[in-house]
Structures are given as C-alpha cells and as structure tokens.
C-alpha cells in the first residue's frame, strides 16, 4: 500500500467503515483525543468540525492530522517483506580484554542452540551487545557479526530497530496490571497478527504446558509465580515475538520444564543463546561457547561422552523433579526416592 491509498482511507471511507476494516485506527483517534468525532463522516470531513484548538495542542492542523494518519497507517500495516528473514548468524572474533585475538569464526543457523558458559563478568554481555548492534569491528571487542553471511552497513543496522534479539532473564517481571488473556491480546495487537485469536490461544496452552502449576486466562500476570511467569514469557517469545534471535539468561529450576521450553523456541526456527551453568541445559545445546576475560576462548561441540552423561543427568534431574512434585503435593521425602 502506498501513501496515496492511505489518504483515500481518510477521504473516501466513513470513519465507521474505516474502524471496521482497520481497528487500529481507533488508537490514532484516541491518541489525538478525537474519539468522539462524528463517525458517519470521512476523517477529512469530520476534521472540518473539530475545534482547531485541540489539534493545536498536539502541534497539528487539519492537514497535519491527515498526514500523520497516513504515517500511522503506514507504520502499522504489516510489511510484506520481513527485514528479519535471518537464516544464519556469523561471529568473527575480535579481541579479549587483554587485546589478545580471539581466533574464531562461528556460523550459527536457525534452530540451533548455543550455550554460553563462563564466570560472572567474563564478557557474556559484551557478546550479546555485539550481536544486538550487529558489530562491524567498531565496538570495543572488535568483533564482526554477519547476517546471512553478509556485513551490514549502518543504515541496515539502524533498520533492525532493536528487533533482532529477544531477551529473557531471571530478573524480568511483568509490570502491567492485566490478566493473562488481556496481556496476550495486547501483545498480539502490537504485532499486527492477522490470526490474533488463534495465536493467543496457542500461546496460552503452551505456557500452561511448560508451567509446573496451571493458571487461568483471567489470572493477573503480576500474580503469576516465578515459574508461571517464565513459562508465559517463553511461550510468548516463541509464538509472538518476531525477533529471530533469543537470548536466555538462566532459567530457574523450579516450576518450569526448561528443556521443553528451549526446544519449543528452537522449533520456531530461532537462534538461541542460553547463558547457563546448568549441565542439563548446557549439554542439550548443539554447541557450547566458553567465555573468559572478555573473549570467546573456545566453541565445543557436544561430544558423544557428554551426550551419554546427559542421560545420567536427565535421570538426576527427573529424580529432583519428582522430589519437588512430592513436596508440592504435601507428601514426604524418603531415601528410597533418591534411588531412581
């Protein structure tokens, strides 16, 4: 759709019809305190009856309103070609904090899971920073990040508009005073999803599957437990966020199926970085990146021996999970339960 078509929406269509076809236009009216203008007229006709004083308070005149209406509609019409069609990400090494070269070139494809390990302060956030701004040798690390094998120029980097990486971390909270379903509806609306209802439903079911304890659509998001919140955030990131890269900073043990959560994200064809020291998560990844002194010192493939020990770790984890469930149900713990 080009801008002339949007002008036509304001001149040829009654506001009533406009709102039916483009519900989001009601936000435009509300933003300018124009909710009560006569709806049977077209926007440009209706504006003739509006007190200029109100428009001036927003720094607009009638023409300005029409112009920003077109801009608004243009911004919120889903683009046909997604800028974020990402199939691979390449990290080309720079320097660590002592200016020693990193000697690394790693290409990661969609659906791959990379775990990041290293002590606190080792440089995980430096790495994330580089990925987020698609560094081109111009950040303190000197790293270069290629998207689909190519470098990006500054204009393309700006176009990313901060949408490349979605983040999930332990200390994130819900702050809005909304119920789960209101919250999901609101997010779906902002994503301009055409099949909002189905997506919201899928998201809700999936979050409940991941969460240890179930919750209802009318539960307030601020009242969810830690595990439930995390489950909802992960399901939401999987189904609604269009960021092709997800960074997960430690998911807590309690109240959520961590592995299932990560698998879900990788099935959605996202590139996943998990910063974790949890052996179960680290070994379920495809590769493991070791960070020290601000630099990537090595990238390990998960070896066969490690894959074998994963089974034993899983058993340990299941045992612990069983104990947690027993506690939750008010049962008692016995030594026998520890022998899986």
């Amino acid at each position: 759709m080009i801008r002339q078509d949007f002008i036509a929406l304001a001149t040829d269509l009654s506001i009533e019809d406009l709102l039916l076809e483009y519900p989001i236009a009601s936000d435009f009216l509300a933003n300018l305190r124009l909710n009560s203008i006569p709806k049977q007229l077209s926007l440009s006709q209706a504006l003739e009856e509006v007190d200029e004083g109100i428009l001036q308070e927003f720094g607009l005149d009638k023409f300005g309103v029409l112009r920003s209406f077109c801009e608004f509609m243009e911004t919120f019409t889903p683009a046909e070609v997604s800028l974020h069609a990402l199939s691979s990400l390449t990290i080309i090494g720079g320097f660590n904090k002592s200016r020693e070269p990193e000697n690394i070139s790693l290409t990661i494809s969609c659906g791959e899971i990379i775990s990041i390990v290293g002590p606190t302060g080792s440089g995980k956030s430096r790495l994330l920073n580089d990925i987020e701004c698609v560094a081109q040798g111009d950040t303190p690390t000197g790293r270069r990040i290629l998207i689909n094998g190519a470098e990006l120029d500054d204009l393309q980097r700006f176009e990313m508009d901060g949408k490349l990486v979605a983040q999930l971390s332990q200390n994130m909270n819900f702050v809005m005073d909304l119920t789960v379903s209101e919250f999901l509806d609101m997010h779906a609306k902002s994503r301009l999803t055409t099949s909002a209802k189905q997506v919201v439903e899928k998201c809700f079911l999936c979050a409940n599957e991941l969460a240890g304890e179930k919750f209802m659509p009318d539960t307030k998001i601020t009242q969810l437990s830690g595990g439930q919140s995390r489950a909802l955030m992960i399901a939401d990131t999987a189904y609604m966020s269009n960021s092709p890269i997800v960074l997960i900073d430690e998911i807590e043990n309690a109240g959520i199926d961590r592995r299932q959560a990560i698998e879900l994200l990788s099935k959605r064809e996202k590139i996943i970085f998990v910063s974790t020291h949890d052996p179960l998560l680290a070994l379920s990844a495809d590769k493991r990146m070791v960070i020290k002194n601000g630099g990537i010192i090595k990238v390990l493939d998960i070896s066969d021996t490690e894959k074998q020990s994963l089974k034993a770790i899983e058993e340990l984890d299941n045992t612990l999970q069983k104990l947690r469930n027993r506690l939750r149900d008010g049962a008692q713990i016995t030594v026998d339960l520890l022998k899986s």
């Binding site: 936000d27 920003s68 994130m172 819900f174 902002s190 966020s241």
Partner: peptide, 27 residues
C-alpha cells in the same frame, strides 16, 4: 527494559510508534 518481559518491551515500542511513527526506538 532489563526488568520487564520481552512482550512488554514490544508493546511499549509499539505504543511509541503510535505517536511517533518516524522515530527510531532504541533500548
């Protein structure tokens, strides 16, 4: 943005775009 959920960040950015469509939003 580091203390709220990804979804809330996205909704927030969306609401910014509503009033300033041409602005670049940076977290």
């Amino acid at each position: 943005g580091d203390i709220v959920s990804q979804a809330e960040r996205e909704v927030f950015a969306f609401n910014i775009k509503q009033v300033n469509a041409s602005a670049k939003v940076i977290f």
